[in-house]
């Protein structure tokens, strides 16, 4: 038995992006960190299998395959709660946040980097709209063939919260989970100070700034990751489902909350708004936030706490 604190750090791929897991434990607690990490990774794999639209057996793929078939899909309480949050976000954002906007994304075909055909956009818009879904208690159905839902963003942040919850249940007092830039934490880092977490700089590869987290989570939503050119103009990859066009909103928004899912939901909706409306939305949420505008200007309670650039 050693008296040194136990530490585990693992890097891996999960929920469609890079992941990092750190756990610290005092030696007297006698935690089996490898076993805990294994449980966390199993949980992440389970959630990915359940919610990824790239896995044919996921509940999302099943719902999407049955679009327009008239066959309702039974959904469990967990999926119901995630879909309920999606519905509440759609409502609160005036329809900007919409997990059915997949067909529009395909019309713009960001991967090819090409421009969109306006007629394609119009026909895609017919397949988009949360108000069209059919949902009664535990039965869910998409009414038109070609419609689809995407729970990817919410599921990733939910996975981070679930990992934290599982580790808390295993009496872990110090841990960090990072899934593609979204971070959730338990307690403080190994030296007893809050976890220092970097927010990615939209203009470069470095960190925009560091926030310190203790039993809190931060999520960042941005338009910087994948951008497209259209008739000489640069657009982000987020699309306004009502116009069918990419939004000209902030470059990135980071939000801090007790849970990653709620932080991520607020940040994602903020990025779909114009910068002015994003401000109002973030004020309403009343959580600490940081916004980087299209001109590179930083604002929000987190930015205000940073020293002025020299």
């Amino acid at each position: 038995m050693t008296d040194r604190p136990l530490r585990l750090e693992q890097h891996f791929k999960s929920m469609g992006g890079p992941a990092r897991l750190v756990i610290n434990a005092p030696p007297e607690q006698q935690l089996d960190l490898d076993k805990i990490a294994h449980l966390v990774r199993t949980l992440l794999e389970t959630l990915e299998a359940r919610y990824s639209r790239y896995q044919v057996e996921s509940i999302v793929s099943i719902i999407n395959r049955r679009a327009g078939s008239g066959v309702f899909t039974e959904i469990d309480p967990e999926t119901q709660a995630l879909l309920d949050l999606a519905g509440r976000l759609w409502d609160a954002s005036g329809g900007l946040f919409d997990i059915t906007s997949g067909p529009l994304r395909q019309a713009w075909d960001f991967r090819a980097g090409g421009s969109a055909d306006p007629t394609q956009i119009d026909s895609a818009r017919l397949l988009v709209g949360w108000e069209k879904i059919e949902w009664q208690a535990s039965s869910f159905h998409l009414p038109t063939p070609g419609m689809e839902i995407d729970l990817g963003g919410l599921a990733k942040e939910y996975a981070a919260d679930s990992a934290i919850s599982v580790m808390r249940g295993l009496k872990v007092t110090s841990a960090l989970i990072e899934l593609a830039g979204d971070v959730a934490t338990i307690g403080d880092s190994e030296d007893g100070t809050p976890w220092r977490v970097g927010i990615q700089d939209p203009d470069g590869v470095g960190s925009l700034c560091a926030v310190q987290l203790s039993n809190a989570a931060i999520a960042t939503s941005g338009n910087y990751a994948r951008r497209i050119d259209h008739e000489g103009k640069q657009y982000g990859h987020l699309i306004n489902p009502q116009t069918g066009w990419p939004v000209e909103g902030p470059i990135s928004v980071s939000v801090l909350d007790s849970h990653c899912l709620t932080a991520g939901a607020v940040a994602t909706v903020a990025c779909l708004h114009s910068e002015e409306h994003a401000h109002t939305w973030l004020e309403q949420a009343a959580l600490p936030w940081l916004m980087v505008s299209s001109t590179g200007m930083r604002s929000g309670p987190i930015a205000d706490r940073m020293p002025a650039p020299s």
Binding site: T173, C209, S214, A216, S258, R305, M306, P307
Partner: peptide, 21 residues
């Protein structure tokens, strides 16, 4: 172990701690 928020440019002196609202 309460939730604390603090933001600072990396490697600068950390400002005072605040609680989550």
């Amino acid at each position: 172990a309460q939730a604390r928020l603090e933001a600072a440019v990396a490697a600068t002196k950390p400002p005072a701690l605040t609680q989550l609202p």
